[in-house]
């Protein structure tokens, strides 16, 4: 029988692998697949945690995550693609160097976590330490950093947005790993992100690449 904690850690680790896939892939369509798969994994994590802790709130949250982020967000972004969406590639991807950079950032993130954040968890009262899950917090932190990296290294707006969704997924994972927020707050955050996706999709009209414009310097 596999211990429950290892199932949770496995799902979180899979979320990290999906984040690395987002770094490596050069087809823009794969970024939307990343959003769908990572969100599905997050939803599975949440529903299992809900069952494990007998929490209806977490199960409701899991359903909302998969619906609002995995279905609606992906659908909105997909509608922005031209008909032959398979052919849309990123113009700025240099895959080998990004793999090295991505792995380097993971190592640095884990070192930073161990040095700066792990002592914070250790400083918590025992009652809270029983709830907090350090491996999940570490993975959430690393996924968030991967999201930042995706935004910083790419010019394609869909890829940048994928980075943002990755960060939001990481924040939900962090929240579940540390101390779940009240359901009303979690749902509001999900709806807020959805509103931003809708606004972002309007801004995706025209060029799919973020550009350096003369008027926007200085």
């Amino acid at each position: 029988m596999i211990p429950t904690s290892e199932v949770f850690e496995l799902i979180a680790a899979l979320m990290l692998f999906v984040a690395i896939w987002a770094q490596v892939g050069s087809f823009v369509l794969s970024k939307i697949q990343v959003i769908i798969i990572q969100t599905t994994l997050l939803s599975i994590y949440t529903v299992l945690l809900g069952i494990y802790e007998s929490s209806i709130a977490l199960i409701v949250l899991a359903i909302l995550i998969i619906f609002l982020r995995g279905v609606v967000t992906a659908y909105i972004l997909l509608r922005k693609f031209p008909e032959r969406s398979q052919l849309v590639r990123e113009s700025s991807t240099t895959v080998p160097s990004i793999i090295i950079l991505s792995i380097g950032v993971i190592i640095v993130s884990l070192v930073v976590y161990q040095i700066a954040l792990f002592p914070v968890i250790q400083s918590l009262p025992d009652s809270v330490q029983r709830i907090a899950n350090p491996p999940i917090i570490a993975l959430g932190f690393v996924i968030a950093i991967q999201g930042f990296l995706l935004i910083a290294t790419r010019k394609n707006k869909v890829t940048q947005f994928t980075g943002y969704i990755e960060i939001e997924n990481a924040m939900v994972l962090l929240s579940l790993g540390i101390f779940p927020l009240p359901l009303v707050i979690e749902i509001s955050v999900l709806l807020d992100v959805l509103a931003l996706v809708i606004v972002g999709s309007v801004l995706l009209s025209g060029s799919l690449n973020s550009e350096r414009l003369e008027d926007l310097t200085g």
Binding site: F148, I151, K157, G200, L203, S210
Partner: peptide
């Protein structure tokens, strides 16, 4: 064009 780019940067940077 400039306005759309500025709005995109605004949404992305602030939300992140």
């Amino acid at each position: 064009k400039n306005q759309i780019e500025a709005a995109w940067r605004y949404v992305l940077i602030v939300s992140t």
